[in-house]
Design a protein around this nucleic acid. Structure first.
Length: 423
DNA sequence: TCTGGGGTCCTAGGACCC
DNA sequence: TCTGGGGTCCTAGGACCC
């Protein structure tokens, strides 16, 4: 039998804010999405006040002011860096690790079976808290799905923030009470349908007929049932797979009507996506460009469209991709609308060394490659966007709002926290 | 006025082939 | 009146995750 542990940072973004601003301890804290649109992280105090996940901020602004909630725009430079620190500590405890998202990782405890797993988890939790200031919860079980459940219990019911489902009696009791909609992989649609079959709890699902449910839902639900039974179907994916597609898009800080501005924004997103593409050492075989007006606004004229383009030769060259992206945009742009968002996707990504190049174009390729390499190098040394394409715009009036962002404490020299000492 | 931004996997259905 | 049976590939859309 395998043993998995799921390490999940508690209210991660809110916790990151607290690390550098201890005044926020025990106070309600929320973090907002890009453009201060929705609530995407809440401290326990904010959850207790009843602020829901994903709530549109403008509907809760007054409530937050009234209840002295500390509100932050998202600060991904900080969260990304803190995440990296947490994961590095985890790696020092266990080499078999799958970084599942910015705030959670699965690790395999197989090599520690003989040791006191609960004690080891405690050590991990303490080390992360000590070195980063981030509180984590740990769930231990024989499959990934069960370790997610264990983590859920660790967060909600245990005092130490660690919970193990390896004991048969506890496992039965927990599954009996665990709501089916809280199981990893069971979303709103599935839980609604499952409930119509009388399946309300994790135990009901575990004991349901595997074949019938796999057929009525999908193989995904079949795997979940097996996992609930303690049969591991979802292996630890510790080798980072290159992305199959890369998307880059943002809502604008204000509605945009001008094609030139849309082109700037799109060029900027394309440059970001290309950088990601080169970092994973891939080329794209196509691109998809889309734009739309604010679909929530029922009073305004709506328009949304997208188009794709397949490249004759796979590429990761920013200048070429910006050129193509703009061609796509002009194909779908209609004047007279107030646009809310433009974006693009790099499609059908392939590893660099796999495809054939055009023999006759080799000289051009080499020149361009050298140029891109130089740009990337300069930006890595002097900081992001030290050098950028003119097409990306300079003023960037369309750019997102983030007026309540905390300093980028750990990644910008001029934003490092200062400590005043009296000697 | 104001509602995020990424990803993955699976399935159904259409087009096409022999 | 009667119109096969199998396969593959691609795409769109739906479900899920954080």
């Amino acid at each position: 039998m395998s043993i998995f542990a799921l390490i999940d940072c508690n209210n991660f973004y809110a916790s990151c804010e607290r690390v550098f601003n201890p005044k926020l301890e025990k106070k309600p804290v929320v973090v907002l999405s890009n453009n201060d649109g929705c609530v995407i992280a809440r401290s326990n105090e904010a959850k207790k006040l009843g602020i829901p996940m994903g709530a549109p901020y403008y509907q809760w602004k007054y409530f937050c002011q009234k209840n002295r909630v500390h509100v932050f725009s998202s600060n991904y430079a900080l969260y990304g860096d803190m995440s990296h620190r947490v994961m590095t500590i985890l790696e020092s405890f266990c080499s078999e690790i799958e970084i599942y998202s910015i705030d959670e990782s699965f690790i395999s405890f197989d090599q520690f079976k003989e040791t006191d797993l609960f004690g080891y988890a405690k050590e991990i939790k303490q080390a992360i808290k000590m070195y980063t200031g981030i509180p984590v919860s740990i769930g231990i079980a024989s499959t990934k799905t069960l370790s997610k459940i264990a983590n859920h219990i660790a967060k909600k019911q245990s005092i130490e923030g660690i919970f193990s489902l390896t004991d048969a009696e506890i496992y039965e009791k927990i599954l009996e009470k665990f709501p089916v909609e809280d199981i990893w992989g069971i979303g709103r649609q599935y839980s609604k349908k499952l409930k119509s079959y009388g399946i309300e709890t994790a135990k009901h699902l575990r004991d349901a007929d595997l074949k019938t449910l796999s057929r009525k839902f999908s193989v995904v639900v079949g795997k979940i049932i097996q996992e609930l039974r303690g049969i591991s179907c979802l292996p630890l994916e510790n080798i980072i797979q290159p992305r199959k597609q890369i998307m880059s898009s943002r809502s604008f800080g204000r509605p945009v009507t001008d094609l030139a501005e849309l082109e700037e924004a799109l060029s900027h997103y394309t440059a970001n996506a290309c950088l990601k593409l080169r970092r994973q050492n891939s080329d794209a075989n196509g691109i998809y460009v889309f734009l739309h007006t604010n679909l929530f606004n029922k009073k305004e004229m709506q328009y949304s469209n997208g188009t794709s383009y397949h490249f004759p030769i796979p590429s990761c060259d920013t200048s070429y991709l910006i050129h193509i992206a703009k061609i796509c945009l002009r194909r779908i742009f209609k004047s007279g609308y107030r646009y809310q968002k433009v974006g693009m996707m790099l499609l059908d990504l392939t590893p660099k060394n796999l495809h054939q190049y055009d023999l006759l174009a080799i000289d051009e390729n080499t020149r361009k490659k050298t140029l891109i390499k130089a740009i990337d190098h300069i930006n890595e040394t002097l900081g992001k966007n030290a050098l950028f394409f003119c097409a990306e715009g300079i003023e960037r009036a369309w750019q997102v709002r983030s007026g309540m962002r905390s300093p980028r404490y750990t990644t910008q020299w001029n934003e490092i926290p200062r400590v005043n000492c009296k000697i």
